[in-house]
């Protein structure tokens, strides 16, 4: 059974103002990802990878086409309903970590729990899971990039999501930190989560069960 399915996704960004540039970011992308899969989306910068990921996560609406999560067409849902869906089923990890700067590592995870529908574990356990128990009271600025990304992974797990969506999770990390993060991702995959990663990291792509390459807004056969 596919947990994620897209049908002919199109996304056109219309610029505003006099010299507006219109960008055709996606041109009819259809894919299916089964439950528990580890899928990678690869491709060059500016070819539509992140756009595809954002549409799958319901952060944005497509210009045309549909996105199904568990057979539910999320393009028909309101903004709030999509937020609710994310709170229930999806965990996000971003390239630039995107932690809340004024909160500690623990509080960042706890904040995500405010919205979580099914909190399986407490925030301390999640930090332990990514090996950061001793950094619970550190603010993001006091953490290394790798540590911040692990906090972001702990945060993404706050709602025990079925799906983890990661946008270049190792993109801003040195190779050792990238390695650590990769290990965590694989661990999560083994625990049964469906993982979709946009990446430039070949190691990561090689370990994936499915690889989608996006080129000029379309999927190429790979």
């Amino acid at each position: 059974m596919s947990i994620i399915k897209t049908e002919n996704l199109e996304k056109i960004y219309k610029g505003k103002g006099k010299n507006a540039v219109t960008t055709h970011a996606l041109r009819g992308v259809s894919l299916e990802i089964p439950q528990g899969a580890f899928a990678c989306i690869i491709g060059k910068s500016g070819h539509g990878k992140s756009t595809l990921l954002n549409l799958i996560g319901g952060l944005d609406n497509p210009t045309a086409g549909r996105v199904f999560i568990y057979d539910e067409d999320i393009t028909q849902l309101s903004d709030n309903k999509r937020a609710q869906l994310r709170a229930k089923k999806i965990g996000f990890v971003f390239q630039s970590f995107n932690l809340l700067e004024n909160l500690t590592a623990l509080e960042n995870v706890q904040t995500a729990m405010l919205f979580a529908k099914n909190k399986a574990q407490n925030a301390e356990d999640l930090l332990a899971l990514v090996g950061l128990s001793d950094k619970a009271n550190s603010k993001p600025a006091q953490l290394s990039g790798g540590q911040q990304q692990r906090v972001a992974i702990a945060r993404a797990l706050a709602n025990s999501p079925d799906i983890l969506i990661m946008d270049e999770p190792t993109g801003n990390l040195d190779s050792q930190s990238a390695e650590e993060v990769l290990e965590h991702i694989l661990k999560l995959h083994k625990s049964g989560k469906t993982i979709i990663v946009v990446t430039h990291n070949d190691d990561l792509a090689q370990k994936a069960e499915m690889v989608f390459e996006v080129k000029d807004g379309k999927l190429t056969d790979s």
Partner: peptide
């Protein structure tokens, strides 16, 4: 703004 976006991404509703 960016934080607002993050909060929305991790499931925060408009009401929150």
């Amino acid at each position: 703004r960016r934080e607002i976006g993050i909060l929305r991404a991790i499931g925060g509703k408009k009401g929150f």
